[in-house]
């Protein structure tokens, strides 16, 4: 999505007043030719579907046909129905929990690779971190079912060791299972941006902080962490945005209490044959993501002063 806006900006900046009067400069022409294939692609696959969804959200389903009268009734219904709002709230909470868990676990890993692995070994480590991606997402989710199940790997081991007498039931078919599964799936997405931010920190800054009387711990808090913030914010966005719309994981490991807004959107489109309502919920989900992302982008701007 941001890619689309970047393209759009490039195109708009490329258009000079001369062009609007029908006179294209040589370089302007060449620029437009160069940009047009990806732009057409983005237009077709991003902007058009997005506009369609937006349009649908203002229509209504009239049994088998779609009533194309412009109305806000879907939005009124979505805000009025406690089920939709509960699902949206739960999606935000689960996505938030996944983001917190993922970023908190990713930071130490990224820190270790950046600061304590020999430079010649770093790429090997990054390569190993991507191993989860070698298996399909679906299989990974299924594997978590095997691990977390009533008679699964975790429960039978814990019983075998004698730590528990009966299987733990709070780890599968609820929101916890969704958080665990998604946090694992998105770990590399969080590790990589944080790693890059840590790599960019000039090591002499840390020495300067030590030299000025700070300990290793306070140096981390006063120098390393603030300078790693752009990476942390990127990781937060990269994890939060896709997880809020995830519907495979909640469907497979979430149980009835772990379902999220995307499951409802899917149901509206495919089972209830109510595309306009599905579109409305999709727009609402997107708006919540946008709101959260804007907050983080603003935080990031505040955090790092100076020219951008």
């Amino acid at each position: 999505m941001p890619g689309f806006f970047v393209l759009l900006r490039i195109v708009l900046q490329g258009i000079k007043p001369d062009m609007l009067r029908g006179r294209l400069t040589e370089s302007g022409k060449r620029g437009l030719v160069l940009i047009s294939p990806p732009f057409a692609y983005a237009l077709l696959l991003l902007a058009v579907p997005l506009a369609t969804i937006l349009l649908f959200s203002f229509w209504t389903q009239d049994y088998l046909t779609i009533d194309t009268t412009f109305t806000f009734s879907n939005y009124t219904e979505a805000f009025g129905d406690p089920l939709y709002m509960a699902l949206l709230r739960r999606s935000l909470l689960i996505a938030g929990a996944v983001t917190v868990v993922t970023v908190l676990l990713a930071f130490p890993i990224a820190y270790f690779v950046s600061f304590h692995v020999q430079p010649s070994r770093k790429s090997l480590w990054l390569f190993l971190i991507t191993i989860p991606f070698w298996t399909s997402y679906l299989i990974r989710v299924f594997l978590w079912k095997v691990i977390l199940g009533y008679n699964g790997v975790l429960n039978s081991s814990l019983i075998g060791v004698g730590l528990i007498d009966e299987p733990l039931s709070f780890i599968l078919y609820n929101a916890n299972a969704v958080v665990i599964t998604l946090a694992h799936a998105f770990a590399p997405f969080a590790i990589l941006p944080i790693f890059v931010a840590l790599e960019k920190i000039d090591r002499s800054l840390l020495e300067a902080s030590l030299d000025l009387g700070e300990t290793r711990v306070t140096t981390f808090l006063r120098v390393t962490l603030p300078l790693a913030m752009p990476g942390v914010v990127a990781a937060v966005l990269i994890v939060f945005i896709p997880t809020i719309g995830d519907y495979v994981t909640p469907r497979l490991v979430g149980g009835p209490d772990g379902l999220m807004i995307a499951n409802m959107i899917q149901t509206q489109f495919l089972k209830l044959n109510n595309a306009p309502m599905g579109a409305t919920l999709a727009i609402l989900a997107m708006l919540s993501v946008t709101a959260v992302s804007l907050v983080f982008i603003w935080l990031n701007r505040r955090w790092l002063r100076g020219p951008k």
Binding site: D202, S204, L205, E207, A208, L212, L227, W303, R305, G306
Partner: peptide, 12 residues
């Protein structure tokens, strides 16, 4: 106290 070759000015 040290003045570093790169000056090590905290950019944030």
């Amino acid at each position: 106290n040290m003045v570093f070759q790169s000056y090590a000015i905290f950019p944030h």
